[in-house]
Simulated scan of single mutants.
Amino acid sequence: MSRIVIPAIVNATGATADVYAEVKKMAGGAVPNVFAALGHLVPDALSAVLNAEGVLANGSLSKQDLETIKLVVSEQTGCDYCVAAHVMLGKMTGLSSQVLTEIRQGASTGDDKRDALVKFVLLLQKTSGTIADADFAAIRGAGYSEVQLAEISLTIALTIFTNTFNRINDTYIDMPRVK
């Protein structure tokens, strides 16, 4: 059970009910526990997350790239809820269980562009300050555009937000757990 008690979704009213309806439309009728909690507490924050996710969905990064970034960040922050979510969503984008494990471990996936993305996201998560010119050149050399670098940044920021909230809430995992 999560630390923050959430009333039944069917009893939601006002802005919370509105944002839950938006989530249900996007998620095939379900409201994941993290979104239930955020929508109950700060519906505008959940709406902002959904809007930003929409920007990314319409952006230039592939769904596999987005799930790769989210999984790397979630693994680094130790958010078991988000690791489970992004393993499940990664599989839905066509990433194999083996590749998802390799992403989580920071190991080679056999795809040079994906490996460069994992390395870059890990660099951003494990260091501070401006990245070195060589690191910028490496991610650009792997084929990522300047627009995609901005999208990578937004993806990392959104993932850190949900990771942090889930770590505070100890959000109950409502999907298949991963080891």
Rank of each mutant, 00 (worst) to 15 (best):
I69E: 05
I69G: 03
A84M: 02
V73A: 00
I4H: 12
A15L: 07
E67C: 10
G78N: 05
V23G: 06
E53T: 13
H40L: 08
V49P: 06
S74I: 01
S47R: 15
G29C: 03
G39A: 11
A17N: 00
V19E: 06
A48Y: 00
A84P: 05
S108D: 13
D44Y: 12
G29L: 07
G94E: 09
V49Q: 14
P43D: 00
S108C: 00
L89S: 14
Y81N: 06
T68V: 08
V99M: 11
V87R: 04
A12N: 05
I69D: 01
D65E: 11
S2T: 14
V42Q: 02
N58H: 11
S2R: 04
G29M: 05
D65R: 03
L61K: 06
L61Q: 09
A15Q: 00
V31P: 12
N58G: 15
S2W: 01
L100G: 07
Q64P: 04
R3W: 12
A107W: 07
S108R: 14
L89P: 01
L71P: 03
V49H: 13
F35I: 02
K70R: 10
A107H: 14
A48R: 07
D112F: 10
T109E: 11
E22S: 04
L61R: 06
H40D: 13
V34I: 14
M92N: 14
Q105A: 15
N51M: 15
I69P: 01
G39W: 00
T109R: 12
Q76V: 09
S97G: 01
G59R: 03
A15E: 13
A48L: 05
L66N: 05
Q64F: 00
E22T: 15
V72H: 08
M92I: 07
L46T: 11
A8W: 03
L38K: 00
L71S: 02
S60Y: 01
V34E: 04
A85Q: 03
I9E: 15
K25F: 10
L95E: 09
A85M: 07
L56G: 13
H40W: 12
A57I: 07
L46F: 11
E75N: 03
A45Y: 08
G90K: 09
A85G: 10
A107L: 14
S96C: 08
L89D: 05
L100V: 03
V42R: 12
V31K: 02
G94R: 02
L46G: 08
L56A: 10
I9W: 02
A37Y: 08
D80L: 07
L56W: 07
S108I: 13
S62V: 03
G39E: 00
N33V: 04
I9Q: 06
Q64I: 10
S108G: 13
A12H: 09
